[in-house]
């Protein structure tokens, strides 16, 4: 799957991080859709039908775990791969998310673009093969 054919939904409440991630992944060739909280993320997910979701956990209005649960509960959205964005060393939340069906996670604080892109490619390939 080529990046240019791949649409990624980024759900992140921190504006500067959302902007930075969007721009970086656009430059890497992906199509990007952004959302500022879990609720907006679910709306965009249904409207834009992305190939992958990057999901923050701590957010106002609706947090990442709730959004993930709703996503997995709906037949239309349950198969979209999810990569968790986290800034907390909160392993409980990460393992909760993984057990709910998230494919991988990224610690935001020290991420490098190449690492992120290769992670996304791996997840997309796994999805493609599976």
């Amino acid at each position: 799957m080529k990046p240019s054919n791949t649409k990624i939904l980024i759900v992140e409440d921190e504006e500067i991080l959302l902007t930075a991630l969007s721009e970086e992944l656009k430059q890497a060739g992906f199509q990007i859709v952004g959302a500022k909280d879990g609720q907006e993320g679910l709306d965009k997910l249904r409207a834009e039908k992305p190939d992958l979701v990057l999901l923050d956990l701590v957010m106002p209005r609706m947090d990442g775990i709730t959004a993930l649960k709703e996503m997995k509960a709906s037949p239309d959205t349950k198969d979209v791969p999810v990569v968790i964005l986290t800034n907390l060393s909160d392993y409980d939340k990460i393992s909760d998310a993984l057990s709910l069906g998230a494919m991988d996670y990224l610690v935001k604080a020290n991420y490098r673009l190449e690492e992120l892109v290769s992670k996304l490619k791996t997840v997309l390939e796994r999805k493609g093969n599976g």
């Binding site: 500067i16 991080l17 930075a20």
Partner: peptide, 10 residues
């Protein structure tokens, strides 16, 4: 850390 990471990326 959150905004700092953003600032670095931007």
């Amino acid at each position: 850390r959150s905004p700092l990471t953003g600032i670095r990326s931007i």
